[in-house]
Design a protein around this nucleic acid. Structure first.
Lengths: 130, 130
DNA sequence: ATGGGGGTTCCCACAATGGGAAGGTCAAGG
DNA sequence: CCTTGACCTTCCCATTGTGGGAACCCCCAT
């Protein structure tokens, strides 16, 4: 049984975020008589779970669903896999979009002299009509 | 000389965003006697510039600097190139991070049977201690 | 004059995180 | 016993970029 500060240290989630996860309903710690939140080992496990999921880029809504599956002893691994792969697709789509931007811009930059002169194909491109 | 709706249609930037760009100081349209914003062709060019820069993922702060360089006839292309390449690095770093997440997660998913059984290495990983 | 299609400002929301203020609580030590 | 400092509580604000919507004003055509 620990306070929020200890739970933060034990889980690697900041106290601020722990409270936030509670307000969005991912967590329900007990309260001591003085109003302090009290975290049991199971709560710490939840917090670590959340952190790992966040480290993999899952948005909180998907973390919520993962948690539900985690707690459900009758889940099918298929459902977990589906959720995970949909997230993989989202990540890859986003990454591809960023890489496309980077590639276009790098392309433009390669044609830029990068000297004292003001002429610059990067600005020319940004200025274009369409 | 056009109103904000026409400027939106001409530039591809929503009226909502045009107002926002104004409040953050990227734009200063004139005002008609009735209080309506009035956009000149130069303003439309600025809006298109902003849109192109946003399409390349530049955050508004960098868009602001690009605009300043664009307007500065004495700019050096080196400065533009530096700004662009720093953004390229940011994009690539972000993309790499997303791809790393996707790769880890895909890896985990590959080891998940994805059937009716509850055992799932994805959840096992999220549950892990550290 | 009236109705519709603009325009204006202002507030709220998202997602996830952090900063900070104002105040309550507890343990240690003088 | 009381102070001090570390910790807890709630509440508000900011970030980034975008959108939704309310309440209200304006102009033109019917």
């Amino acid at each position: 049984m620990m306070t929020i500060g200890e739970a933060a240290a034990a889980s690697g989630v900041s106290a601020k975020m722990i409270r936030h996860y509670e307000t969005v309903g991912l967590l329900r710690p007990h309260r001591a008589a003085n109003g302090y939140r009290v975290y049991a080992d199971a709560d710490i496990a939840v917090l670590r779970f959340i952190r790992h999921a966040r480290d993999l880029g899952f948005p909180l809504e998907k973390v919520r669903r993962l948690l539900a599956l985690w707690r459900d002893r009758n889940r099918s691994s298929a459902e977990v896999k589906r959720l995970a792969l949909s997230h993989v697709e989202a990540l890859e789509a986003k990454a591809a979009s960023l890489r496309a931007m980077a590639a276009s811009l790098r392309q433009l930059a390669e044609h830029c002299h990068g000297d004292e002169r003001p002429e610059c194909p990067i600005l020319d491109e940004l200025e274009k009509a369409p």
